[in-house]
Amino acid sequence: MFKILNKKELNDAVVRMDIEAPYIAKKAKAGQFIIYRIDEYSERVPLTIADYDREAGTITIIFQTIGGSTQHLARLNAGDSILDVVGPLGVATEYGDVKRVAVVGGGVGCAIAYPQAKTLYNMGVEVDVIAGFRSKDIVILEEEMKAVSNGFYLCTDDGSAGFHGFVTDKLKELIDSGRGYDEVIAIGPVPMMKFVCKTTEPYGIKTIVSLNPIMVDGTGMCGGCRVTVDGKIRYACVEGPDFDGHKVDFDELMRRNATYKNQEKTHVCRLTGGVR
């Protein structure tokens, strides 16, 4: 059993939890993920590790309540336990020889973009963070991201805070102003990552994305997480989740991620209906 030590609601739909997992905390690195299974009836769900504390033996996860399994997790409180947590899975992000990097986060993806920015910033890299949200009410981690960036650019779709527009507009503006990024790291909804890659491609700026395909085991056994990168099958669980964004087939990923959309709807109804 893995005990939840702290829980905080970052906005209406995003929750942060610190979980006691000493073995994982000892080894976790930015870019890696865990798989959790709440109880005997739950599915296995992958979540990127947002932070870790090796001394305290804890890992931090930040997740958005989208489907049944994340709603179920969000209903747990500090003191409750999760039946299974396994990790750290996946390959840690490999940073090239970079001097200036733009880290682009979209929505809850900022939870994962933040540790990337933090790692780079602490390495002495000049970091710009571009964080996009639908509107002001759902902004998360603003202070944290500011603290680990040289330039912080908040964007909202509705203009209720910061720059009025998409992260891609802001990114293009910064590139055109001569920021001279060696690399862009984009983490967020698949369409956002797709369009960040479209934005950087003409400039030839290497762009790393963190993919979130459907997974079951997460250890290189089931093949459910396969993605097409550079025309070849790659397994996000053991070869990713980071890939060269200019080579990823995002449309295929979006289709495959929607495989159980209809079943998910009935699943949520069942959960909120309190049946089980």
């Binding site: 085991d217 396969r226 929607a258």
Partner: peptide, 18 residues
């Protein structure tokens, strides 16, 4: 890569383990 193509490992894991 079409939706509806499984590896046997995934299909069976969903059924037997999960």
């Amino acid at each position: 890569a079409l939706v509806g193509v499984y590896s046997a490992n995934e299909y069976l894991t969903r059924i037997n383990l999960m």
